[in-house]
């Protein structure tokens, strides 16, 4: 009876998994079909995979530029956000004041605000500062956008660092800078890396700002897919190939980082 039940739930679990994975899986399959096979009926399940769609995507030349933009923006904004957030989190964890708790909640609450509320001013500011459609501009916006989450995540990770070690360092005459550099950073390294990873994923997926603030020069992959999908909407195999390329890094990273992802998206509620 017990074994039977386990079998049934396992089968059910995998059936749901299949259903959940279907859209992604189907897209991945379509990417390796010819355009004709992609729309043929009944859908072809077994076919000779072709790489011609990928070749076609790469031939557009600008594809690599969009990828480079995505990489630059994701990593650039992550470094900027970490540079701002590590000191802030350090202060809140190791030099707390009675108001630290509310400061933290307040910061987090800003993440809840819909970005449309600040879109117009930022757009105007960027236009006047010449930051529209530049990688620098996107790096700044993405970093600011994810800053509250990064501070919060680092806060929860720093909390796990034993205070005694840092206090021992202080007693031995370490300056604040040495305390952070020699003691805190190495100890909290896994947490910082996880936070960075989450930020890279969030920035990689971000579309609201990239659609609104870029046109062509600095547009990352999300903007590329959005633009690709309207004129070439009929070329499903090519669109699938482009989409698959755009999410491939996340598919790989996502497998390893799901814990961090959940922790970040739940604002640290789930560890």
């Amino acid at each position: 009876m017990r074994a039977n039940n386990t079998l049934r739930t396992t089968v059910l679990g995998w059936a749901v998994a299949l259903l959940m994975f279907f859209p992604i899986g189907w897209m991945a399959l379509t990417a390796f079909k010819t355009e004709l096979q992609a729309v043929s009926t009944p859908p072809v399940l077994f076919f000779k995979p072709t790489l011609e769609n990928f070749a076609a995507v790469f031939e557009r030349g600008d594809y690599l530029k969009f990828t480079l933009n995505s990489v630059l923006v994701s990593f650039g904004s992550t470094f900027l956000a970490l540079a701002l957030a590590v000191p802030a989190a350090y202060r809140m964890v190791f030099h707390p004041t009675p108001r630290t708790g509310s400061t933290l909640l307040w910061m987090l609450s800003t993440k809840m605000m819909p970005p449309v509320g600040v879109l117009v001013p930022i757009y105007l500011l960027f236009r006047d500062a010449g930051l529209l459609d530049t990688v620098t501009g996107l790096v700044i916006v993405y970093a600011l956008m994810n800053l509250p989450i990064v501070v919060w995540m680092l806060y929860t990770y720093f909390k796990d660092v034993p205070r005694e070690i840092l206090e021992a360092g202080r007693v031995d005459g370490a300056s604040a800078w040495q305390e952070v550099q020699i003691l805190l950073l190495p100890l909290a390294w896994p947490g910082i890396a996880s936070t960075g990873l989450l930020n890279v994923i969030l920035a990689w997926n971000e579309a609201f700002w990239s659609l609104n603030l870029t046109t062509s020069k600095a547009a990352p992959l999300t903007a590329f897919i959005a633009a690709f999908s309207s004129p070439e909407g009929l070329f499903w195999a090519k669109l699938s190939a482009a989409s698959l390329l755009a999410i491939a890094p996340i598919l790989v990273v996502g497998w390893f980082s799901q814990k961090q992802l959940v922790r970040g998206l739940t604002f640290g509620a789930v560890k």
Binding site: M20, N205, I225, A246, G254
Partner: peptide, 10 residues
Amino acid sequence: LYPMALSFIV
């Protein structure tokens, strides 16, 4: 959890 890690655009 996979879908959550992917871009809404894709």
